[in-house]
């Protein structure tokens, strides 16, 4: 069981929470709790309903997509400070990838329905949180585009 101040400290330690005002962070800490995952734990599976947003405090998680015939492909690993579960805020609230724990991980978890309700009520907090979230998603989109280019790939070989 985590105390409110532990949660607040954990939030403040990473990139996501560090830029928030004390008040905003306090609001979040009020509805959050710390959760730990052991190595190998599947936090969520692709397509499952997702009901919480989490900020990683410690450890490393892999975002995996299952490609029939190729097995699970890791497309991204998540580090402390980054968020997982942004689908909790955006309909249809289903996980877009499978999340697997690579190193012992702890996260600050925010219950989705409560967070959505709170953000609906509090535009100032919503602006602060959603900006962070947009930033995180935008970075991820940009990185994914770069990955798509497959820059290190060998150009097509000639038969010679």
């Amino acid at each position: 069981m985590s105390t409110r101040s532990t949660v607040d400290n954990a939030l403040a330690s990473g990139w996501f929470g560090a830029g928030l005002t004390d008040a905003a962070r306090a609001h979040l800490a009020d509805m959050a709790h710390l959760t730990s995952y052991p190595i190998g734990e599947v936090v969520i599976r692709e397509g499952q309903a997702i009901d919480s947003l989490a900020v990683v405090v410690e450890g490393r998680l892999a975002l995996r997509l299952n490609v029939p015939g190729r097995g699970a492909v890791t497309v991204l690993t998540i580090e402390p400070g980054d968020v997982i579960g942004w689908s909790a805020l955006i309909p249809p609230h289903r996980a877009t990838s499978t999340i697997v724990v690579l190193e012992p991980t702890s996260v600050v978890e925010l219950e989705g329905a409560a967070l959505r309700a709170r953000l609906d009520e509090d535009p100032i907090l919503a602006a602060a949180v959603l900006w962070r979230l947009l930033d995180a998603v935008a970075r991820r989109l940009s990185a994914t585009r770069t990955q798509l280019l497959d820059l290190f790939a060998q150009p097509d070989r000639e038969p010679w």
Binding site: R60, A62, L63, R64, G71, A72, V73, T74, V75, L76, T77, E79, V100, L102, E103, A143, T146, Q147, D150, L151, F152
Partner: peptide, 13 residues
Amino acid sequence: DRAGPVWLGRVGI
């Protein structure tokens, strides 16, 4: 840039 399940290191650009 991408990895299979055996890789426990970082994935991403």
